[in-house]
């Protein structure tokens, strides 16, 4: 069954998505989650370990974990910044990620400081991510 890749956001090759929410003071807020392909590959998600609000994160370093019955997968920060919010609803309902990975199943929001425009601009667009999934 083909998985969805909406074109309103950007992607990493580690199967995270990033969607700019807007500006907040001097920063840009980016919402982050895992892709439909990632949740499908993991299977039923039963536990999520998220960073603390206020924690600094940087690209390429793990900021959390998503666990299925069988395996654990690291979640990497797609952008550098400070964790502004976490999806606390996932603590009791991690299966929300399976049901709605691009919506209610979001993981964290990261505030990126600086005025260099869209902090997700350098990431994969939907076509590039789809190509990556197709090749895997």
């Amino acid at each position: 069954m083909p998985t969805e890749v909406p074109d309103d956001r950007r992607y990493t090759d580690q199967h995270e998505w990033a969607l700019v929410q807007g500006s907040e003071g001097a920063g840009t807020v980016v919402r982050v989650g895992i892709t439909d392909h990632a949740q499908d590959a993991l299977g039923d998600i039963v536990f999520v370990q998220l960073p603390e609000v206020g924690e600094e994160v940087s690209p390429g370093s793990p900021m959390g974990e998503v666990e299925s019955t069988k395996s654990v997968s690291d979640v990497y920060a797609p952008v550098a910044g400070v964790v502004a919010a976490i999806n606390t609803a996932l603590a009791d309902a991690p299966e929300t990620i399976n049901a709605d990975p691009y919506g209610e199943g979001w993981l964290v929001e990261i505030t990126v400081t600086g005025d260099d425009g869209d902090p997700t601009a350098g990431m994969l667009d939907a076509d590039a991510y789809q190509a990556l999934v197709d090749a895997s």
Binding site: M1, G43, D44, V46, S68, T69, K70, E95, N98
Partner: peptide
Amino acid sequence: AGAKMADFSGWSMPIEYAGGGVLA
């Protein structure tokens, strides 16, 4: 049936089925 297959000791076997999943 849309099963995800994986290797178990040299045998390709279903881990879970589409429309099912481990929990269901």
